[in-house]
Design a binder for these strands. Sequence first.
DNA 1: GGTGCTCGCTTGTTTGTACAAGTTCCCTTA
DNA 2: TAAGGGAACTTGTACAAACAAGCGAGCACC
Lengths: 248, 248
Amino acid sequence: MVARYELIADELRGEILAGAYPMGAQLPSESELAARFGAARGTVRQAVAVLAAEGLVGSRQGARRIVLGNARSQSFAELHSFAQWARANGHRYGGLMINQRRRPPTPAEAARLGPGEVLDVLRVRTLEDEPVLLERTAYAEWIAPVVEELPPDCESVTQALYDSAGVVFAYGEHLIDAVPASAQDARLLGVRRGSPLLRQRRVTTTHEGRPVECSDDRYRAGSVAFSIRNSIGANPLVRHAGDLHFGA
Amino acid sequence: MVARYELIADELRGEILAGAYPMGAQLPSESELAARFGAARGTVRQAVAVLAAEGLVGSRQGARRIVLGNARSQSFAELHSFAQWARANGHRYGGLMINQRRRPPTPAEAARLGPGEVLDVLRVRTLEDEPVLLERTAYAEWIAPVVEELPPDCESVTQALYDSAGVVFAYGEHLIDAVPASAQDARLLGVRRGSPLLRQRRVTTTHEGRPVECSDDRYRAGSVAFSIRNSIGANPLVRHAGDLHFGA
DNA sequence: GGTGCTCGCTTGTTTGTACAAGTTCCCTTA
DNA sequence: TAAGGGAACTTGTACAAACAAGCGAGCACC
């Protein structure tokens, strides 16, 4: 069952992306939209709130909503899963497990995943047949047996975990910064040691709040960028000073 | 006039941050909260939606809301203004204008700011007396006269533009990636050439959608990290392949 | 003992109404 | 001509009511 406001949001989004409303143009008023879709104003409000959250439109009390952009932003899954992102964007992609072993957690990992042993997995991901991403992931003990059963060239771990164990990634926290390539990074990504890498450290939990994984992903410079749209009303991206947040 | 749902959100946020609800705990139901605050369920819903957007709580249909974290996230202004961010976080900070000149816009800038000349400003920002950030900002022609009047050691450009011209930054788009330091970057930030920098390219507009500036900010590695919390319901951060999005 | 089902609780969606607050534009007035 | 004052319009907030959909616990049954 798809909600009505989602359908309305989809239709409006489609029109915006198709260019029916050029950038800076005004959207019809809520009343007009309500009449057009035969829905209550509250429902239309929810629909445009979706578009505002996506950064497509802006709103101010008293004035009509304006169109801010015409590029679509991706889904949650595409931020957590390299494979789902690459597929949705029409890229050729692959992956290979390099190394996998159980070990005791670091203090930082224990704080996030719990006290048990972690499963440490090192994977290389390719985009257009070029290695672009190095994933160093620590899986919580409860999910480790499932991960160990995956084939080394598993294309989408997220998908595989859902298929075989019903695990859904629902919440995540991400820290993004830049680091120089270590010797191992350099060898596996085919860059010089010390060259810039875009690092994304993340912790992922299920919808019950149970921690699943804790990962350190490093992208080759120039291969990938993160994008965010925000407005004065709400913004989720935050700066942190130094390394004080994630521990060693 | 502060909205009721904001007050309720503030109170609940305060309790969460104070540790009244430990991580993973359940929040009271909407009905209970409605009774407690003497408000309608819809109003309470708006309040908890605020907390959910901040990543503090998660919700699933059928189950009570759970507490996901207990750290506050910052405001929009703190993402756009280095000074406001640094001040809010209790850092010692400063800034110095290195260079400022008018020039014709690049094609990418013309597409974002309009066809007029741009004011190109190069600034160095310091944190705890160390240079950590290099800002290369192109201001749109309509705001250039105001920017030119600012003192070279202006601490907060955002604040100054608001005070002297009433300009409010309301919407922004940001692209984050990693680049090697150029010769100029290296000299001004005191790092080796080619060492990793965290780059944030952004376009900012007023609440009417009028573009104000277009900037290329480079942070020294290790000095600053960006953080984001997201959930399966909504996430604003997106990956982009290569440099295809911002132009040269 | 374990499996499956039902029932109550909780969140999600939708409609309707009313008023508050801010914007835009026109029209009056000095 | 320029400043000021509305009036109409539009978004924001709040309340009330009803039903849909998902979750979890407890119960009955095998």
